[in-house]
Nucleic acid binder design. Structure first.
Lengths: 204, 204, 204, 204
DNA sequence: CATGAATGAGTCTTCATTCAT
DNA sequence: TATGAATGAAGACTCATTCAT
């Protein structure tokens, strides 16, 4: 049903996959284009048929992967009806994606925060779109009277993401994973949910 | 009583201050040693009388600044008796430090997450020490029955820090600061506190 | 009677014409084979079906164009009987060719003087043939007692050509052409003619 | 009396001298910066302490050498009183400079005609200054009634220079120098002088 | 201690050329 | 023949580090 990837698409993908691996291992600045080429099984020059330059590899990587992540998240969240469960689901999916694609996660972690000119613009756009998934849940919760009005959705969506990101980072770094990722996801989302809900609701 | 800084100490400091400025502006890998030297008003070679190499500048920067940050935080927190207020204070101090020393904060943000070999070891040690300030508050809270036992202090201290760090990052990036840092600090800490406290306590 | 150009001849020509345009614009070393291909409307690889390599394009260009130029010059000169008028005609034709085919002229100007190994040999042969048109006129003039015997035909043919070439170059570069090319041609040839004729002749 | 060159001046000169040698041998585009460095006895990187980039070496070379050539020519010409002898002297000096500094001459020959953006501007300025030496002699000759008014000084100065340049080029290329440079100089200048002088003067 | 000129290893990038289709 | 994707050698340039002064 799905078309077979053409040779060209294939090579594009292969280079990007190689880049993810290499960037994750060495960081962007310590990665050599030639290493990516080798990892991808192409000649150095071939890279430049698919990407403008080294920077462009990183940018493309974000463009394409962030889009996938956002779409995937929206789909997973969509399955839930309950707003609070949506938040919990968000936490679970985000943490799991780290487990399933740790190389990509490692890159995002660092490069998202790099202040390099070129990143700032594009990445932020996509990142903001991602965060909007959370903030719109919160806003809806506020409309429905479930979540306190004093909560600033923008701030809290940032905080929620930051908390999850850091917990995931810790999990990846920890040699022995004492606490499971899903337990952590539940813990964090419970705290945020409980912290945000209307006190009145809870009395009943 | 405190000795006046010798010329040497002075130059060491000047280089470090210059490095903070330069690293914050360009990121570590796009910063040139010669630019740090110029900013510090010393010759390129002089840098190497005080630091082993470029990496060492960054490491020293962490060593010295993290220590200050930790000591400062401990002192500020110490003024508070109430455990929950301690947490709030933690948030306030962390966010304020971003405002007061944005260059240093910008560096920490990124470099803390760089996977460079040399960082991992040292930085993590200091960072863990910093996080322990939070986790020990939580542990004490649990001992006193204020905070739920199900909460894993290690995980939550990470999450708390991650949330604050991200909110601070957002604040720095936002052109017009709609929400004040202290409001954000309160918002985040309230959520975490409310989210962690024993339900029983709240009924009364 | 003349055969229509086959597809092959056509493509060969198109590539050469494209090369003239591209070399003239960028100079040989700053021209890319791919740009010539594009200009010619063929694939990069096609170039190599007609030419051994990039150098060979330039060489072929000289071979073919120089031959045309020489034949054309001989024909034009042949119309004149008077030796001195032949010289004047040479000047006119040479300068006009610059006007009519400035791209080719621009290439000749520079590449004729490039010391690249491969050029030296072939180009010089053709170039010498071209100069012989002038030197044989001079020799004949000397035989007939019109031109001074002290004049070295080889040297003067060079000088004559060099003078014309530089004047043409100036004309091309000048934004507003104050002096017409034909006036210049006359001026230069007059000087050379007057400068070379036997003084005795002029007394009568 | 003359100050000893400082180390820095020395290295600057050495690189330029090396560049003249290397450019003359291979042409600009076939010359490697590393070859210049080696020839100059410095490290590759050192080149970039004295010149912005490879282009800048060529530009500097023109700037400095053209200036010397112009000054030298003016001085030599200045020794002569007679206008026509000045022209002859110009020819002699120009041709001799080719003999004395053939490498530099070879570079000028080609690069002066290269259309590279950067050259056009600067070089032309200096080159025009050089040609003005000739054209002002001609103008003065016209004022004094020695040289025909119909002669366009700008055009003829170009032609004169072009003639000399080509003769010199021929001389350098010729394996056995049948005709001496000074003879050629005299021949060319005689032709131009005779070709430009007022006919009336010659009758007496 | 301080300097800053010099070093040269290291890398991105280009582009002529090839070759499977 | 024609294509154009792929190759990989080559070279300009940078910059951390050294060391003679």
């Amino acid at each position: 049903m799905t078309e077979l990837p053409t040779k060209t698409e294939d090579k594009h993908k292969r280079i990007l996959q190689a880049a993810i691996k290499v960037f994750a291992k060495n960081g962007f600045y310590n990665s050599k284009v030639s290493e990516i080429a080798q990892e991808a099984g192409v000649a150095d020059g071939t890279i430049y048929l698919y990407f403008k330059n080294k920077d462009d590899i990183l940018i493309s990587l974000f463009e394409e992967e962030m889009e996938k992540i956002i779409q995937n998240m929206k789909q997973e969240i969509g399955k839930e009806e309950d707003l609070l469960k949506k938040l919990k689901m968000f936490a679970v999916v985000q943490l799991n994606s780290k487990k399933e694609n740790p190389d990509l996660a490692a890159i995002m972690e660092v490069e998202l925060r790099q202040s390099s000119k070129f990143m700032k613009e594009y990445v932020n756009m996509k990142f903001i779109e991602y965060l909007k998934i959370v903030s719109s849940i919160i806003k809806e919760g506020q409309k429905k009277g479930i979540i306190k009005k004093e909560v600033d959705p923008t701030i809290v969506s940032r905080a929620f993401w930051g908390a999850l990101d850091e917990v995931a980072r810790f999990w990846v770094l920890s040699p022995r994973k004492k606490v499971s990722l899903s337990t952590s996801a539940e813990l964090i989302s419970d705290i945020f949910i409980k912290g945000m809900v209307e006190a009145v609701n809870r009395k009943s």
